[in-house]
Design a protein around this nucleic acid. Structure first.
Lengths: 301, 301
DNA sequence: CCCCAATGTGAGACAAATTCATAATCCGCA
DNA sequence: TGCGGATTATGAATTTGTCTCACATTGGGG
């Protein structure tokens, strides 16, 4: 027995219109077509859905059950169609974000807060756990936006610059390196470095400084949270390299020193990668604008 | 845009099977057919419901929304189909009852109580208010069973006998008529009669006694409830004619007297009218059996 | 880079839905 | 009770849609 939505619409229309002929008009078809359709439906259902003893035909008991189902289901379908219309017009959609930049959580949350307020219909989420190969996930539409500082050119993907930052050295004021005006690769040889627990290829300290100079630090420990890293640094259990804007609170503290990486200061750029098709969506554009503004605020302290 | 259940089933199948080819197999069609169908659906939706960048194709964000709707709606349809199967096999159905016999409420409720226990799936109801032309309503399938003592032969309707009863005179022990062994039409000429508030053509007192004898009682007042009628009779405000079994509690009371209508005692038969097609339904047959058993119990007191 | 598996495409076959024309019913009214 | 209008049913022809077959195309893994 193959009920279709067409049948539910028919049942509802005949009930509402109070007769087959009027219902046919309502559904933009001939009375004959509807009559054939009803006959087919009753044949499939194996019972009469209408009472024909009286002339404008009416629903039978079984027909009423079907009507009740119709009245529950058809509005849901209508809602789906509306939702699709909204999707097409760009008023709604999905924005699932993943970060390759571990420190960026601090900066992302306020952005998302503002965004959700402006686009309540958009399905926002942060997808942790697949940060390792974010770009393929972007391609497969598992996520819609990747925060990354590594713009590996790729067809179909747009890298939208967000802001520039300096990977910056931070240490306890007690640390001997506090005496130096800038920090070079060699300086890390007898230091314990503290990083996020991710691969070296995704840590500025390694990609920009240590790996090119082939320097191995004395020790390496990891911490999930930026605040924990700074705490460990503050108690001189190690040193770290973090984006400059992460240290906005620490810079004014007497317990810490921050130093540029040198001799030439390293400058990196953070990007929001999106699929090309999505870049045109209004809410994506709005997210990027919000992100840039928020980043500027952060850097100014 | 015309979404159909077919499409919802397709979306669900492709998601479950994890690919179009396997889904096609699951739905008993060729891969090609499903491909065409999906293309048509996406065309109608005006957007891609699947991501084809990866090889076994997966749902896109929009596709997932449709999947969620599918998972809400399809089980309801399955439930409807099961319900229809039950209707066909006679395990379930509707039993809307109307009474032409006003006194029968007292007797019907215990029957319905037992019936609901035995057939919980059957939609039972008592339809008041249309008692005036119950038989046409039976024909139009507005009700499914009519309790009546007037078997007006009619095509398509079966009258199932339930029990015989005597319309019986009841009066206060103070009433002069208490002295008579039986009550005749003439005896009512100086009495106030108390009846249910329905037309005379549906009151045994009139149809069987007064109207044939062309006797008009001194007065006529009405009451909705049997208990109220008996109360009024008890305080000698009038006399009444009710089915014998209604008086089971009153007969043993010293305040009342009950007398047959005479000289020849009137015997009437109560019927349950059903449409012929319905008489075969198992739950209808069961209801009739219960009704007869209960009636016997009542008459024995 | 090639091959396998998965998906897309186009033409023709087939099935289903629709229409047109007309018949059969029912309803109300005189 | 019979008549006219309204309502539904039916049958054949036609249109529309869906499926299949055969083959092209495209990713992904070795």
């Amino acid at each position: 027995m193959y009920i279709e939505l067409k049948h539910l619409r028919t049942i509802r229309a005949i009930h509402q219109a109070g007769g087959l002929a009027r219902a046919a008009e309502m559904l933009n078809m001939t009375q004959s077509a509807l009559s054939h359709q009803v006959a087919g439906l009753e044949d499939q259902a194996g019972m009469e859905l209408f009472v024909r003893r009286s002339k404008p035909m009416r629903l039978s008991a079984a027909g009423f059950r079907m009507l009740r189902i119709s009245e529950r289901i058809l509005p849901e379908i209508d809602a789906l169609e509306e939702e699709f219309a909204a999707l097409r017009s760009g008023k709604t959609g999905r924005l699932h974000i993943t970060l390759e930049c571990h420190a960026c959580y601090d900066w992302l949350f306020p952005v998302l807060e503002m965004f959700r307020h402006a686009w309540p219909e958009v399905d926002v989420d942060i997808r942790a756990g697949l940060a390792f190969d974010a770009m393929p996930a972007l391609n497969r539409e598992e996520v819609d936006l990747v925060i990354t500082s590594d713009p590996a050119a790729q067809s179909g993907v747009t890298f939208n610059p967000l802001f520039d930052y300096h990977p910056t050295f931070v240490a306890s004021a007690q640390n001997p390196l506090a005496a130096k005006p800038f920090i070079a690769a060699e300086d890390f040889r007898d230091q314990v470095v503290i990083t996020y627990p991710v691969g070296r290829d995704r840590l500025d300290l390694f990609t920009e400084v240590l790996t090119p100079a082939k320097v191995e630090p004395r020790g390496h420990r990891t911490a999930e949270l930026t605040a924990v890293i700074l705490m460990l640094v503050g108690s001189n259990r190690g040193v770290a390299v973090l984006p400059d804007w992460v240290m906005r609170e620490v810079r004014s503290s007497a317990d810490y020193v921050t130093r540029p990486l040198g001799p030439d200061p390293v400058i990196k750029r953070m990007y929001a990668a999106t699929r090309e098709e999505d870049a045109a969506r209004p809410y994506v554009a709005h997210f990027l604008r919000l992100a840039r503004v928020e980043a500027v605020k952060l850097q100014r302290g």
